[in-house]
């Protein structure tokens, strides 16, 4: 017997019907094959047609570390008084670690509000699970950051021998980052369909967050600026905590800051569930607007 499909008028969709973590998992699980293929295609797409191909994924990080070393340590002289480190190169690596993780956020969230407009054909011309488009973007930037972090770990091994055992915590640090970016991307993708102003706003907010996340200086410097009981304001920016944790794990051989890690995990999962509900509630209307 062939499958019957019934299309009928829009039922009154409620935000809370989608506010369900199990629904979210089921939804993503259903399309995991499509998701994996899309991420793989996107990653491939970036280096297609260039002579050096995938080699760029290694050359680019190396060049960036050199630039950061040159500018932030040698030219600006931040090695001793900001970072308290002995070598210029170590400062370059610290900053690179922050930039790589921040880029996961900046790339995915920065694209999110324009995402449905860029992928017009998926919205209008074919039946496509639109909710996986933001996830694809995040997947691609996470894969890219893996390569960057990988290069970093190899460099760290050159200078200090065997890698720290604390590296086992690294995947744990990635989780809140991924959930946080996914949640925000879903919300921004929805808002971006209805208003073009969202894009301008996010671009400037991302730039602001860059300086509030302790990328080009240690998070401690920032935390010292505000009274202790206001620290949470800086900490609800998941990126700040994550970058700090990643530095502890990769360079110092310490575990993550458990309190804030668990706080961020709970908070970013909530954000993701809300973002999913928001996207699913309004996605039926996307084709009418775009």
């Amino acid at each position: 017997m062939q499958k019957i499909k019934i299309i009928s008028e829009e039922p009154r969709l409620l935000f809370k019907t989608f506010l369900n973590p199990i629904d979210l998992l089921k939804g993503l699980n259903r399309y995991k094959l499509l998701l994996r293929q899309f991420i793989w295609w996107e990653v491939n797409d970036r280096y297609r047609g260039s002579a050096l191909g995938m080699l760029w994924t290694i050359i680019v990080p190396l060049m960036r570390i050199l630039v950061y070393t040159l500018v932030f340590s040698i030219l600006l002289g931040g090695r001793k008084n900001i970072w308290g480190l002995d070598s210029n190169f170590a400062v370059g690596k610290m900053i690179f670690c922050g930039v790589v993780l921040f880029n996961v956020f900046a790339e995915s969230v920065g694209k999110a509000s324009r995402l449905m407009w860029v992928n017009k054909t998926y919205v209008k011309h074919i039946v496509f699970p639109l909710e996986i488009i933001p996830v694809t973007v995040i997947g691609v930037s996470v894969v890219q950051s893996f390569i960057g972090i990988g290069v970093l770990i190899v460099l760290e091994m050159f200078s200090s021998g065997i890698p720290h055992w604390s590296l086992v915590y690294l995947p744990l640090v990635y989780l809140p980052l991924i959930f946080f970016c996914t949640g925000i991307s879903w919300i921004l993708a929805t808002l971006g369909v209805f208003s073009r102003d969202v894009d301008n706003l996010t671009q400037s907010l991302i730039q602001m967050l860059f300086f509030l996340s302790g990328i080009i200086f240690p998070l401690d410097r920032l935390l010292h600026l505000v009274p202790d009981h206001w620290n949470w304001i800086l900490r609800i920016n998941v990126i700040a905590s994550i970058v700090d944790d990643a530095r502890r794990i990769i360079f110092q051989g310490l575990g993550p800051d458990w309190f804030w890690l668990i706080f961020n995990l709970v908070y970013s999962i909530t954000l993701m569930v809300v973002g999913y509900a928001c996207f699913m509630r309004y996605k039926r209307g996307f084709a009418d607007v775009i």
Binding site: K5, I6, I7, S8, E9, E10, V123, K124, H125, I126, V127, R284, A287, D288
Partner: peptide, 10 residues
């Protein structure tokens, strides 16, 4: 094709 919802009908 399923890319748009009708206002009414089946």
């Amino acid at each position: 094709a399923g890319t748009m919802m009708p206002t009414s009908g089946k």
